[in-house]
Design a protein around this nucleic acid. Structure first.
Lengths: 149, 149
DNA sequence: GTATATTTTCGAAGATTATTCGATTATTTA
DNA sequence: TAAATAATCGAATAATCTTCGAAAATATAC
């Protein structure tokens, strides 16, 4: 992929988009200034966190999607938030949840292929000393981020 | 939540946003017409599927987040796509994956609370005749849709 | 129940941005 | 090497967002 498109993809992953007020105004038949007011309100109140793009991840070299269930070890077991926040900074990581059940963390990972996935797991098991981890690989993504594929 | 904001939230969940070309142009120091050309290209090629908003889901009455691992029964077992696509239409469903391992489907569900979650599971186990299902509830969402919370 | 304060609506005008167009340059294909 | 295609980009237009102020609706206090 071209350098410029790669930059765009990375910017659009977390933001650099805006609401399309005029189109909504036509659709729901409300004045655009009223919509503008309400949208700004929701942004200020933190209801809306970001405007972003959803991709065909295969086409941006992130076609391999895996859900990782993780057990933490030692002192991290009782304090999963620290590791969760560090994992969240990783740009291959789509989501991190602290959760109930047999595992403390659920990480959704997007990599190019199984090789890149293997490298990621190898590096992070070592780095964060995961006690145990199970992975569920997506064979087909039917819906992602509320968008049907 | 007010009627108008509810409408906005529902529209922003799947689209009704656009890229912010001028801001990107300044940031990466490229002419906005070049960016425009490349973005339109990516849209046509299906690289970009949608522009949408990410919410603080607690604040839009969808604070309860659960991952559901599902076993299908009978004829559906060999053909999970049909059910996956039907589940994808459900507006409480953020994602649906057909996956490897002990379960055929992985569904990410966002509901108001545990009561609404219970109703959803009850209705859908019956409707789709799930053979078995396990759920992992998110206690804290540290990152969602590539956006840190 | 009424007065006051606050929030929300919304049209008009200005500021900003997206989009089209055409020419140039770069890249690919034959 | 030539021709075809794809990509860049400045200028101008079209469309959009944003601000402003006034009015209406709603909430709060007395």
């Amino acid at each position: 992929m071209k350098d410029i498109r790669l930059k765009l993809v990375n910017l659009f992953k977390q933001g650099f988009c805006v609401p399309q007020i005029a189109r909504i105004a036509k659709k729901i038949k409300e004045p655009s200034t009223t919509l503008h007011y309400n949208i700004k309100r929701m942004e200020k109140e933190g209801v809306i966190k970001a405007y972003k793009a959803v991709f065909d991840y295969k086409k941006i070299g992130q076609g391999h999607c895996t859900y990782l269930l993780i057990n933490l070890s030692g002192e991290d077991y009782g304090n999963p938030e620290k590791i969760a926040k560090e994992l969240a900074k990783d740009e291959s990581v789509e989501s991190v949840d602290i959760c109930t059940g047999d595992y403390e963390l659920l990480v959704k990972l997007r990599t190019k292929d199984i090789d890149e996935y293997y490298e990621w797991v190898k590096n992070n098991v070592q780095k964060f000393k995961f006690a145990k981890s199970t992975s569920i690989t997506s064979l087909k993504q039917v819906k992602t981020e509320f968008v049907e594929m």
